[in-house]
């Protein structure tokens, strides 16, 4: 297993994936911190007033959505005018960057005729997109 061999090559798809992941992570975190400052300092009015938020976090999620009159899924996109909901932009970027990474490496894998990994990557994109779509409904 241990050999003297100086040829360490990182695959081009791995470098590409890492580079997109890094950019997405930095953008997502930056936006999340900026939007949180906007939220906490009241630069934008929150949907749930700051002094009322503690009333909600001990509820289960269904009671929370019900009492706060919030719809699940992607409804936060319609509420971006509120200071608390703009935080979801950064969160969605952090949760979405992996899908972008996979999409970007698929053509590279295809050019290398690495068909097994093309198929794995396409299925992974579909799986993550299904999770992100909000089509999967669950509840207590």
């Amino acid at each position: 297993m241990v050999e003297k061999n100086k040829d360490i090559k990182v695959g081009p798809e791995q470098i590409l994936y890492a580079s997109i992941l890094e950019k997405g992570m930095l953008i997502g975190l930056f936006i999340l911190f900026i939007t949180f400052i906007i939220y906490v300092f009241g630069i934008m009015k929150p949907y749930i007033p700051l002094d009322e938020i503690s009333k909600f976090w001990s509820m289960n999620v269904h009671d929370y959505l019900d009492h706060a009159k919030i719809k699940g899924g992607w409804s936060w996109l319609l509420m971006l005018g509120y200071g608390d909901f703009i935080n979801f932009i950064g969160i969605a970027i952090l949760a979405g960057v992996t899908i972008i990474c996979y999409i970007v490496i698929i053509p590279l894998l295809a050019r290398q005729k690495d068909w097994a990994f093309v198929i794995f990557s396409v299925i992974e994109v579909l799986v993550l997109s299904l999770a992100a779509s909000g089509l999967l409904k669950v509840g207590h």
Binding site: F33, Y39, V61, G72, A92, L128, L136, V138
Partner: peptide, 15 residues
Amino acid sequence: WIYLNQGCVIPMMVV
């Protein structure tokens, strides 16, 4: 994503 879409994310806890 499943938790996010179900509404289980409160930014005041996450950040």
